[in-house]
Every structure is written in C-alpha cells, then in structure tokens.
Amino acid sequence: MKMQPAFQRFVNGIVRQTDCNQEERVDLYDELLSHLECAFIDYKKQGYSEEEAIRTAMSNFGTEQEIGKQLQEAMYPYRKGMMLALSIVSLLFAYSVYACQLFIMGDAHIPWLILAVLISTAILFVTVRPVTSLNRRLWMNSLLLVHLVVFFYGLLLATDLLRPYSTGLTIIALILIVLSIILVYRTTIYDFPSERQLLRKDAKRLHFINITTGIFIVFVTLFFLWAFLWFAPAGSPVFLILLIPIGSWILSYTLQMVLLAKQKKTWAYAIVFLQTAIIMAAIAFWFINIF
C-alpha cells in the first residue's frame, strides 16, 4: 500500500519520543498505525483522493512532536521533565561547584568534574533520545545510582566551600540527590516494572521497602566509614566489616525478587520481615547503648 511508508515514518516519529520499552513501542506503534489507517479509509470513503486522505489523516492526528509529548506525559507523568531538570541542574551544579572549588579554595577537582559531566550528559541524552534497545530499568537505575554517588561527593565539595557559596550549593546538591532518589523509586516501582514479576502489587511493595532499606543502610555505612577513618588506619581489614550490611541487603533483595518471580510470595515476605526485624533490633540496640 502506498500510504504505509508515510504513516510508518509518522508513527515512528511519535513513538520515538516516549520512554516505552521495545514491546510497549510495538503495541503503541500498531495501535497508532491502525488509527491512521481507519481515518485514511474513512476519508477515502468521503471521496478524498489517496494523497489527500493520507495528508488529512496525519494532519488531523496532530504533529509528531505534540502527540509524542502528550503520550509520554500520559504514560509517564512528569518523568521527562524530572529527568531533564536532573540532568541540566546537575550540569550547572557541577560547573558551579568546580569553579568555586578552583577559584575560592584553589582545588581543581578535574576527575570529579569529568564524571559529573559524563553522568549528567548521559542522563540528558537518554532523556531526549530514548534508546529502545536498552533495558530501560537496568540502565536508568544504573545511571541514577552512579549519579547519586558522584553528586554525593559533589555535596561534600559544596559543604567544603566558604559561606555563602556553600549554603546555596549544598541546598542544590541535596535537591539533586533527593530528585535522583525519587527517580530510582519511580523507575523501579512505577515506570518500568519487571516483566518477570507477575505479582505486580507485591513487587511494588517489596521494591519500596528494599529501596528505603538500602538508602538507610548506605547512609549508616557512610557514617561509620567516616567514623572509622578517624580511628582505624587506612587499609585496615576492619573496613571490610562495613561491607557486610550492604552485601546482606543486596543478597536479601535479590532473593526476595527471585522468590516473588517464582510466585513464592510468603517466603519473599518472610525474608523482608526478617530483614526489617534485624535492622530494627540493631537500631534498638544502638539506642539502648547510647542513651
């Protein structure tokens, strides 16, 4: 059919602007194409020539950019805006902190600048040009986690500055870190749920608990790392102890997801309950000893 190449190009242009994975894109592509074909047939029946029917069907549909944007917003509300804000503000923050560190403190943090620019640009790139061949959840979360690490260091660089520069930049760094964490939550739980998990609601619940637990464990580990750096000599094997909670959490999280994928819901919940109970007991033990 003569109409198909024009419609295909048009629909491709629309779906390319969404954050859908390959499977979702195929569905969306087929659905949009069938809408256009129906409209084309209707216009033909109304006496339009073939070329007029194609043109009218596409023009009544709207522009590629507008429809793509609306579909993206309908499927993933505010996601693109959040990602754009994260990448652009991260870039501006990286340049600002680097310049302040250089011209006020006399320190050129070149490796950090390169890492910060690379990760911010990568997030900007996948936001404006979604790559369908990538495993969206894995890649997005990997980028966001690297972003968190790099910009946590950026937060330390911001706090290290003289006032008033440190105050403003520290607030921006904290906003970036919070935004990055929110995006990890929504990427994992809402935007790109795993295809392997049939128990979607339970998966969401467990992801939420585990991500929150992970953030808490990483925060506590960093605190102890800071404290150990004061007392233990560098390279001491005591630092390996600090990896135990993070390692245990990764193991527990993986196990829960594997069990849930096999629909062993009770076992998955039993593990998350045990994990939470151990952390609560550790917190209680800590408080009793401190106070």
Partner: peptide, 9 residues
C-alpha cells in the same frame, strides 16, 4: 574548565 583547573590549581 579542565584547562582552567590545570592553570589555577
């Protein structure tokens, strides 16, 4: 910025 860093560090 990298060039500036190398000069002013």
């Amino acid at each position: 910025f990298i060039v500036l860093g190398l000069v002013f560090d």
